[in-house]
Measured scan of single mutants.
Amino acid sequence: KKYKIKVYVKDKKTKKWKKIKEIEVDTKEEALEAIKKLPPNYEVKIVP
């Protein structure tokens, strides 16, 4: 079972969220580790 991490950042001009990358991992633990490495201003969604 794979997890997709969708990473969004808020556009300063439009104030809208835009997706900047998608990370695919195998476990939820890996997903949480990957999220920890991202800057705090990123919004993250984990999709099972």
Rank of each mutant, 00 (worst) to 15 (best):
Lys36Pro: 03
Tyr3Gly: 00
Lys37Leu: 12
Leu38Cys: 04
Glu24Gln: 14
Glu33His: 08
Val7Ile: 09
Lys28Trp: 14
Asn41Lys: 11
Tyr8Gln: 00
Ile46Pro: 02
Trp17Gly: 01
Glu33Ala: 11
Lys10His: 10
Tyr3Lys: 00
Trp17Ser: 02
Tyr3His: 03
Pro40Lys: 12
Val25Met: 10
Leu38His: 02
Tyr42Thr: 13
Val9Ile: 14
Lys45Leu: 11
Lys18Trp: 08
Trp17Ala: 02
Lys15Val: 02
Lys4Phe: 09
Tyr3Cys: 05
Tyr42Val: 13
Asp11His: 06
Leu38Ile: 08
Glu22Pro: 00
Tyr8Val: 01
Tyr8Ser: 01
Glu22Ser: 05
Tyr8Cys: 04
Glu24Leu: 14
Glu22His: 03
Thr14Tyr: 05
Val9Gln: 09
Tyr8Gly: 01
Lys15Glu: 10
Lys15Gly: 13
Ile5Ser: 00
Glu33Val: 08
Glu29Phe: 10
Ile23Glu: 03
Asp26Gly: 09
Pro40Glu: 08
Ala34Asp: 02
Lys1Gly: 12
Pro39Phe: 06
Lys16Cys: 13
Ile35Gln: 03
Lys37Ile: 09
Lys10Ile: 13
Val44Met: 06
Lys10Gln: 13
Lys37Cys: 05
Asp26Phe: 09
Lys4Gln: 07
Lys19Tyr: 12
Ile23Lys: 02
Val7Ala: 03
Glu24Trp: 12
Pro40Arg: 06
Ile20Cys: 03
Thr27Ser: 12
Trp17Phe: 07
Asp26Cys: 10
Ile5Glu: 00
Asn41Tyr: 07
Val47Asp: 06
Tyr42Asp: 02
Val25Ser: 03
Val47Met: 08
Glu22Lys: 01
Ile35Phe: 04
Leu38Ala: 03
Trp17Cys: 03
Glu29Gln: 11
Ile35Gly: 02
Thr27Lys: 02
Val9Glu: 11
Pro40Trp: 06
Asn41Trp: 10
Pro39Met: 04
Trp17Ile: 03
Lys18Val: 08
Ile35Thr: 05
Pro48Lys: 13
Lys2Arg: 12
Lys19Asn: 03
Lys37Met: 10
Tyr42Met: 07
Pro40Gln: 12
Lys19Ile: 09
Lys37Trp: 05
Lys28Asp: 07
Ile20Tyr: 08
Lys18Pro: 00
Tyr42Cys: 13
Pro48Asp: 13
Leu32Trp: 10
Glu43His: 15
Lys19Ala: 04
Ile5Lys: 01
Lys15Ile: 02
Val9Pro: 00
Val7Trp: 04
Lys1His: 14
Val44Lys: 02
Leu38Arg: 01
Ala34Met: 14
Lys13Ser: 11
Ile23Leu: 12
Lys15Ala: 08
Ile35Ser: 05
Val25Cys: 07
Pro39Arg: 06
Lys10Ser: 03
Ile35His: 02
Lys2Trp: 08
Lys6Gly: 07
Asp11Gly: 05
Pro39Val: 03
Val9Arg: 15
Lys6Tyr: 10
Lys45Cys: 07
Ile23Thr: 04
